[in-house]
Design a protein around this nucleic acid. Sequence first.
DNA 1: GTGAAAGCGCTAACAT
DNA 2: ATGTTAGCGCTTTCAC
Lengths: 350, 350
Amino acid sequence: MSREPQARTGAPTLEDVARVAGVSRATVSRVVNGVRNVDPAIQSAVREAITATGYAPNRAARSLVTRRAGTIALVVSGAGGDAEGADFAARVFADPFFGRVVGGVVGYLRPRSLHPVLLFAETDVTREQVIAYLRQGSADGALVVSTHAADPLPARIVETGVPAVLFARPGIPVPLSYVDLAHREGGRMAAEHLLERGRSRIVTITGPLDVLAGQDRLTGFREAMARRGTAHVPFAEGGFTLASGEEAMRGLLREVPDLDGVFAANDLMAQGACQVLREQGRRIPRDVSVVGFDDSAAATTCRPPLTTVRQPVEAMGAEMARLLHERIEGGPAEAEAVLFDPELIVRESS
Amino acid sequence: MSREPQARTGAPTLEDVARVAGVSRATVSRVVNGVRNVDPAIQSAVREAITATGYAPNRAARSLVTRRAGTIALVVSGAGGDAEGADFAARVFADPFFGRVVGGVVGYLRPRSLHPVLLFAETDVTREQVIAYLRQGSADGALVVSTHAADPLPARIVETGVPAVLFARPGIPVPLSYVDLAHREGGRMAAEHLLERGRSRIVTITGPLDVLAGQDRLTGFREAMARRGTAHVPFAEGGFTLASGEEAMRGLLREVPDLDGVFAANDLMAQGACQVLREQGRRIPRDVSVVGFDDSAAATTCRPPLTTVRQPVEAMGAEMARLLHERIEGGPAEAEAVLFDPELIVRESS
DNA sequence: GTGAAAGCGCTAACAT
DNA sequence: ATGTTAGCGCTTTCAC
């Protein structure tokens, strides 16, 4: 039934199909695009001709006239200036968080025949490459996941006029929609849980404080602690990595040897904290309760499994894609924020 | 100097630039594409006109005539039939391995202005979507990372005539280039290391045996053990996940309570094995030596840090991209295999 | 060294 | 309901 493999060059065109089917290019185009008002008999004739020729529409030609690329830029952005390790991509994906974002985004995009192009903007140079890419009309829109509050990319994207949606509230105000989590609420949940567990010498390992999510989780945590009468909570700043969690935990143990509760601003750091605590002979949760954040894979692989504040990352990724799609399809141009609620997941670490 | 933000629609075209610069479209095109034989004076006039208008070449139009998309499909492929969890993407990136592949690929592609489109082909339906995408000429080539030996995708891709390169030797022979690791050699290294450590009751946690890499690591491991006189090595099959490593370890401990050496076919499983061993009071490496495979992030975050067989994944990803690029640029069409050598990294777990 | 013009493959008015 | 036609924005002979 179907034809020989087509060499990419000299692939059959609408013209070829039209000739075989004995109709005009326009009619074939209508059939291909599912436009009504085509005689059923002709329709099937065209379909036959399509399989006979092995025709597939040429994306560039179609894009040129429809002004749609069928492509979405999925950009992971840092705030770096000149230098940044060459392993940015690998480091990014070392946090299970990003894989989940991608999963959510792809889940929305795929059924709609939109394809994500993966871009990294970790330095000035690469940032400009992303802008150049967007300015070429290569993508119909951009989904941006920033790793820093000071990220200059969103503002640059606004200038291009390309529709974009952010993951997380931008540090520098820009008129773009974003999805985010109620981080403070999450911090509050962690604090109250620790308190309910009867912990009284509580410390926290924060995220990088140049990341809004890190800030906000800390703020919410502190506020809840203050509301219960604790004015000061010893803390150490981490970098959302396992190693930084270990280091922070070591420091805090030195500072507060009799601590009995730890809130880490993500699971990776909580896992690091657990490792250090156990190394030093503290039993979890008997001696120390540990609460993480994200509910990523790290939470369940950690020993013991982590009590954590769940972030519905996949849903957030999907929503981000939906917002962008809506905007591309001509929806309202006003920036919109969609806030998700965190959920406390109690496991064995607390 | 530079102009107003351009609304994407009605973006300036070559024509506009030509008018402003007082030259023809052809000349502007030459300047933009860095073709020589353009008077320096005219060149700078054109450049000025370009910044004045805020011109950026339209990718679709360019692609249509050059027959180059400037895009590479980066497809992660499974062998699933109908169903497969919706979280395929998230699961894939849960293994640090893929992030490293992406890092290597992007490192090669980016300086060449090639952009990776992320595609997942885990079911029959999504596989056909990938094929359809490729047939549209949407990408100049495909980079395929298969998770199963029985993956039907490579063969389907060959039919499209689109250049492609695989990560890992395909289970079903196809005329495509691939990069791979000398997995058997790696298995051998692990065995010899364990033996040198004086271990005599050694077991192994294999990868999924429907993955060639899993098979080969096991084969190499067994051969080396046999060469040293051990005919049979107790083993349990894992799924390259941490949880499967734990489960396998539990089973093996029941089967061989006095075991003193473990080779796990990847770091994630080795990490799981370590957790179980410690839970059961075995000290690592005093009582039991553990060796992993990959040298992924898991190897260093594991307690204790893992001795492992390093796979130069980033370099392999970059080489895969290079092979594809070469092929796209008209290099030899014969399939080529590039084999990388593993390296034993000794840390504290053995 | 530069311009004129053809045409890449497709969609969308417009005409019939 | 179908065909004709005019571009979409660009590169690339081919003249000059």
